[in-house]
Design a protein around this nucleic acid. Structure first.
Lengths: 157, 157
DNA sequence: GTAATGACAGACCAAAATGGTCTGCGATAA
DNA sequence: TTATCGCAGACCATTTTGGTCTGTCATTAC
């Protein structure tokens, strides 16, 4: 629950690798799969989805493979997530998936949960695969919650 | 993927209701289930977990039911989530669930992902079931990402 | 005391999501 | 023209999830 799928993990690993190889560097499925011990067939499917969504460019030929189509800075974790798994919604009633929610009429907590969801999506969008491969120091103040907020809010400990 | 389960939804609805009824107000499973069209047996299990985790108090008797054991302000969404579904981890390798991760040795994105996870957990901890039932206005500046941060960071649009 | 109420407990099942396999086709450059 | 590598989709096993069913135990109103 509230967990990234293996496919997303695989996509992030592959993209991170390609981000380090760029620019224009080509990696093929077999090599990446071998490096990370990923079943090649699975990674192949994942890469195809990334390709269809326009994040990477395929080179269908011997010595071919994939290369980044846009700069690593512009590929957010959220984009990867959506490309691989479709629309994200922590509450099923808010992403169009569940049209038959039995609680919808009586639901009195949807609004704050959607707000919570927006925050999570915002973080996913703010983190690029470029930053994925960088040392914590670079990220400091961006994704480290404890230093991100000026005031303690209502955080209960 | 990255979605709250129905059980968590049910728990939040029930707790939100009880938070409005307090203090010491008692609600029973049958009534709550009827109000929100939740299968009573399911809600019963959920309530038992909330009870075991110490968030609510059971009153096993006719005219009995459950009441909040601690103030609504002190019950975070994260606590509810953990009580109902166990430890949370958006990356399976970081919550002790997956001890056989094939990518662990070669994984070069774990650190930033764990950071991302911490941010999400932080938000879940910062949102209490008291706030769940309040109007958006009260939450403004707390969970609304767009107004929460002073600077735009690297947010790509 | 006893019967009705409501929590407690756990086996059990069906559907969906997930992770993975297999097979074959299509494009292209060596 | 053939080996390489992407493209496509059917297929299957496992796990997770949501839900049902059956029964027991505690309490209190009568």
């Amino acid at each position: 629950m509230l967990k990234l799928t293996k496919k997303v993990d695989y996509a992030l690993l592959a993209l991170n690798l390609m981000a380090r190889n760029e620019e224009g560097g080509i990696s093929n499925v077999r090599d990446i799969a071998a490096l990370y011990s990923i079943p090649p067939e699975i990674l192949a499917k994942v890469m195809q989805k990334l390709s269809k969504s326009g994040l990477i460019q395929s080179h269908n030929a011997p010595k071919g493979g994939y290369s980044l189509k846009v700069p690593a800075e512009e590929i957010s974790v959220l984009k990867v997530l959506v490309a691989v798994e479709g629309p994200v919604g922590i509450v099923s009633c808010s992403d169009g998936t569940d049209r038959t929610c039995q609680q919808r009429d009586q639901c009195d907590i949807r609004s704050p949960l959607e707000r919570l969801q927006n925050n999570i999506l915002w973080f996913l969008e703010a983190l690029s695969i470029r930053e994925l491969g960088q040392e914590p120091a670079v990220l400091k103040g961006v994704t480290d919650g404890s230093s991100l907020f000026g005031q303690p809010l209502h955080h209960k400990g």
